[in-house]
């Protein structure tokens, strides 16, 4: 009974829509689908979306670890507020985040102006801006997956390492980090999955130049604006398959790490 209900909901919410997506592109014929996907602009958009999402997830993991470490290991006024604040990117409408980040990093923004004047860095309206927006949305995943594991990690393991002659750095590197690694991989996977399909926050800061800063979800929208539903679905299907392969690989990696730790 409960299995049946679960399957029905899974079917209605996940499998049927994704199935429709998988069927739509073939209206173009196999040759047509390949042509859409191998077009320079499509390849550039996919490379950018996946590259930026992987980079952003990679940046979010150490930042999230740092954050979790501070919240779990230190006692200071405002700790609970800080703890709650990291969840804000979950709740904030992404368009709001995108507008705020763009205003901040625009050439006349509070951060954008000094960055450009002192270092010559342009952030808003370049691929760097895309990574900034994606780190913002991926960060809570990285922090929230590591935090409970860190909380459960008893300090006596580090103390035991110290009595056995390990330095602080050795204890962190050989004792703490290996036990956190599976959680960090999970955080990376979740952050990546969130970032790769992100549209709302990116679109304001990206600049959206074809071949340079045009993300794959925007390309899908461009195809839809031309009433080309099948080509849009082809790009969507490619994103789906690529994401699936990456997430599957991360899942296997995480399982292996967990087994190695046990």
């Amino acid at each position: 009974m409960s299995l049946g209900l679960a399957l029905i909901w899974l079917g209605l919410i996940v499998i049927i829509p994704l199935g429709a997506l998988a069927l739509k592109p073939w209206e173009l014929g196999p040759g047509g689908v390949v042509e859409v996907l191998l077009e320079g602009r499509t390849l550039a958009a996919l490379r950018l979306s996946f590259g930026a999402a992987l980079l952003a997830a990679g940046l979010a993991v150490p930042l999230g670890l740092l954050f979790a470490w501070v919240v779990v290991r230190y006692r200071f006024p405002g700790r609970r507020l800080l703890d709650a604040a990291v969840d804000l990117p979950f709740a904030l409408p992404t368009a709001v985040a995108g507008l705020a980040l763009t205003a901040l990093f625009a050439p006349n923004g509070w951060l954008g102006a000094p960055l450009e004047a002192w270092f010559g860095w342009k952030v808003a309206f370049t691929p760097a801006g895309i990574v900034v927006a994606l780190v913002f949305v991926a960060l809570p995943f990285a922090a929230r997956t590591v935090e409970p594991v860190l909380r459960d990690l008893p300090p006596d393991m580090e103390e035991a390492a110290a009595t056995l002659g390990a330095t602080r750095a050795q204890a962190l590197w050989r004792v703490v980090l290996p036990s956190l690694l599976p959680a960090m991989v999970t955080g990376f996977a979740l952050g990546f999955a969130r970032a790769v399909g992100e549209y709302g926050s990116v679109i304001f800061i990206a600049g959206n130049m074809p071949m340079v800063s045009e993300i794959a979800p925007l390309l899908i929208l461009v195809k839809l604006e031309q009433f080309d539903y099948a080509a849009a679905a082809a790009v969507g299907l490619a994103m789906l398959l690529l994401s699936f392969v990456i997430l599957l690989a991360l899942n296997l990696l995480q399982r292996r790490l967990r087994r190695a730790a046990a």
Binding site: A103, A106, P107, N108, F125, G207, N208, M209, L218, L221
Partner: peptide, 17 residues
């Protein structure tokens, strides 16, 4: 330098940004 998706977005980019 920036291709917004709609006219209002471009107005913002030019006037406010």
């Amino acid at each position: 330098p920036v291709l917004d998706t709609g006219a209002r977005g471009s107005t913002t980019t030019f006037v406010q940004r």
